[in-house]
Nucleic acid binder design. Sequence first.
DNA 1: CCGATACGCATTTTT
DNA 2: TGCGTATCGG
Length: 768
Amino acid sequence: MNTDFLNELNDSQKKAVLYNEGASLVIAGAGSGKTRVLTCKIAYLLSLDYKPSSILALTFTNKAAREMKERIGRLVGDSPARRLWMGTFHSIFLRILRANAKLLDYEPQFTIYDTDDSKSLLRSIIKEMNLNDKEYAVTRIQNRISNAKNHLILPSDYDNDIELIKQDNKNGISMFHTIYHTYINRCKTAGAMDFDDLLVNTYLLFKLHPDILAMYVDIFRYILVDEYQDTNFVQREILLQLGKPKQHVCVVGDDAQSIYSFRGANIENILSFETDFNNVKVFKLEQNYRSTQNIVLAANSLIEKNQRQIHKSIFSKKDIGEQILVSKAQSDIEEASIVVKNILKLRRSEDSEYSDFAILYRTNAQSRVLEEELRKYAIPYGIYGGVSFYQRKEIKDIIAYFRLIINPNDEEAIKRIINYPTRGIGDTTMNKIKSFSIQNNVSIWTVLSQPENFNTGLQNSKLVTLHQFVDLIQGFIADSLNKDAYSLGKDIIQQTGLLHITTNDSIEDNERKENIGELLTALNDFITNRQEEGNEHLLLSDYLSDIALLTDQDTDKKDDIQSKVTMMTIHSAKGLEFPTVFVVGLEENLFPNYMSMNSERELEEERRLFYVAITRAERHCFLSFAESRYHFGKMEFAQPSRFLKDIDVKYLRYPEIQNLIHDVDRRSKQYRPVFDIPSRGQDKKIHIETPTNYKPVNNVEKTMANIDTTIAERLKLKEGQLIEHERFGVGEVIRVEGEDENKKATIQFRNSGEKVLLLRFARFKIIG
DNA sequence: CCGATACGCATTTTT
DNA sequence: TGCGTATCGG
């Protein structure tokens, strides 16, 4: 096979591609050609006679998988590319789980509960248990369950974990473990798995059935993982299950771009990879091909302020480029207008396309003001992210019917559409049925379809209504055996009258109708595509599996190809690049976001987020902040973000920024206890060692005056040390008295005399 | 059982 | 401000 593609790689990229003897870790800095390395490596493996079907490549998003497939297709041809096991963890493992469902006591056509489904189920459970929904806030409970699952703490483990139970008691959610049990049981009865289950159950499948594991170990001769910094504990465990025997594992990632810990991603995974496998070869891709030197250096100076990172020196050989322009605006509106003016200016001076610009923000809510301003100047723009197509109510409703046909036990699907369109089965009736199903530990469908087996005491007329619903669904189920998914979909929409629910001619209603039409088109496309691929048996369940794991990022709307300014959150911008990038809203409490200021750990993630934002820019990078901003309808004043100080001023055009930013008062922000599964559960299983190339960056040693000493450090102050106080200047510690938070120090200042400072509050840094 | 109105509460996002 | 839930009255 032709391996010319190797010539397009630089030295370090080539080394990473060619090494296939054992496990390897590729630390790929922003813009360093990570995808190129992955695709070339796979192409290279194919040239070494690895069969496509023996290579497993796991990605973070469907989009990444698709793009990589295309690129490999271009190198080695489409047909081998298609036979690769390439996809997200979830989609690949879903395939494996469907094939082996029976072993886990599931039907192969089990349902996948999305986040809304699990929320809704949890809401029911909390209600059924008569718990206070303030203390037992659904999202919080859901996160905790997800967290537990991601750490492979199953309900029975949870019960036995004194530490966790104690934590719950303290946090006023002592019934959590019961909720967890109930949740799992209900999912089981409904024949459903949530997203986390796709991982947990794969792990369990392999653990409980060594023969099955052995089979897949045999199949997957080489395993590659992209975006390894975004994997969580259970994903790592599965990788160990599959990869340990052969050690033919290559993971690629950048710890500096880990921005998904709120979803369970564990930065330790990449930091501990070297000890997880034998004789791991580490490759670093440090040349950035994307950005100007100034942008790369600015980003480096920023990320350096993080403690936890793998040391690397990213460099660029491109132009020095211009400094990053920082703009101060009076208000969010003025900020938007500054952005627009800069776009117009660059359009003229550099003849740029609208598509050369991206406006990145921390929260979706910030997009509105920007939109208005862009519209004022008739600048075309596109907003990415937000509500996904498949999240829309009208789509979910139809999907719920589909789901029910495939798996009538699906409780969430039933709840969603049993009375939609309204057919006289309201909450009261539903609650009765539900309580029977819970009492007898059977699904709602079981009660519905055989009410005579349960002493329901429902009125006869109600029973008739219920029977009609059951008939309707059973009719669809019968049809599903001999009708293709597309015509079945059409039938469902017609017979249920879903389209006719909305009678008024409002814009929203028409949009809804259009969406439904779009769904049918998608369904039709799906069938046609699969048929072209030679797939004869097109089950509705195939389609459902497909879309359950799809997101908005995957539904490319190719409707218009007009050049547009891109607007998106920084999270969604990961992996993308633009000639010009605006990062807006650099204000305290917004970015870093107030929700993420509870711990140094979270703060570092916010800083990585800022790093990701800056490194999206190829040539121009603009930062801005507003002194006031509308927040929930109220005008609020804002301080410039502390992160602005983290960038070395020499890379900025607006050096006065340093004086503008007051030292962030960390004392007043006592970190709230983080509600989290303690990492202890994990330490038991894995032994996290500090990787050899792990280089802690010591904030205190930095001479930059803007770095505050942390409370903990200040409380350790000892007699004889030298400090520099914000107002009093340099002084020596004469004595320290008091305990912990109440520690006081008497300081002899050179110019300000003797002062007694309460260490918790004093503004100073230790200088000697 | 259903629609209407009041209330309360706000990240980031992929699977 | 704007959405989603909770409660009330028909």
